[in-house]
Design a protein around this nucleic acid. Sequence first.
DNA 1: ATAAACCTGACTAAATTAGTCAAGTATCAT
DNA 2: ATGATACTTGACTAATTTAGTCAGGTTTAT
Lengths: 141, 141
Amino acid sequence: MKLTSKGRYAVMALVDLAKFNNFNPVSLRDISLRQGISLDYLEQIFSKLRKKEIVQSVRGTQGGYVLNKKAKEIKLTNIFDAVDEKVKTVQCKKDSKKGCNGKSTKCLTHNLWDELENHINNFFDEKSLEDLVKDNSERRI
Amino acid sequence: MKLTSKGRYAVMALVDLAKFNNFNPVSLRDISLRQGISLDYLEQIFSKLRKKEIVQSVRGTQGGYVLNKKAKEIKLTNIFDAVDEKVKTVQCKKDSKKGCNGKSTKCLTHNLWDELENHINNFFDEKSLEDLVKDNSERRI
DNA sequence: ATAAACCTGACTAAATTAGTCAAGTATCAT
DNA sequence: ATGATACTTGACTAATTTAGTCAGGTTTAT
């Protein structure tokens, strides 16, 4: 089980954006340079973030992205959801006879994975972008 | 982020083993049939579990595997560890200039992943095989 | 006009996963 | 003894996923 870098990059980029979000839109080029993430890859990621209305784009020269909500209101859940970073612990087939179909026949450990999934999602639900920015500014960078 | 089926199978198989562990060793063949897991794959998994002394093997006819510890003492952490199911949230390169080398320069979100990893590992540390068997016998199967 | 910056979709190399396959070795029951 | 059962090991492979790259746009401030 591991987090993919798409999810990690999305969070890193948004923390960066939140920090520099004061007046002007922040260009992906800047984020790319500061965070060492490929520009092309960032574009893919921000395209998804925009579709989920986490950021807004400003086109043209001096354009870039701005947060579409307050940092406090953007939870990790929202970010991961936007970039398809799924927390998926069980993969039970609907037509499986043995094992698990999720309903009548639960596999021996079905409850466990459900519980784990909740445990992780709780963590993501509570953590906001603001928390990360704060935690970050307390340390020197 | 997702759990691989090697980890899931390992847990399922051990719950099965724990339930039928009363007197005789339990053969992989039986587990394979009951849980619908390929025998060959189970063999790979049990080979690892044996090396980590979670189970003991009994060769020959009527052979099979038995738990090497009390179900209460086998935590999920031990199982996942044995089959290389890693909870890995951050992948920071040691030689990275930007981003993160884990020491002097931490990436903007390093603390977050550490925290998450702890959060998940706590869950695994607390959950024992006995818990799972109990939880399971409360439901009908 | 032109350059900065967003936007989109297609493509690909590398890694990982989820097994299969083959060829053993050990031990029990008869 | 010998056959059957079951563990043991290592190599192999197909499919999927990941982490990007690449190429070609469009929009807009200056």
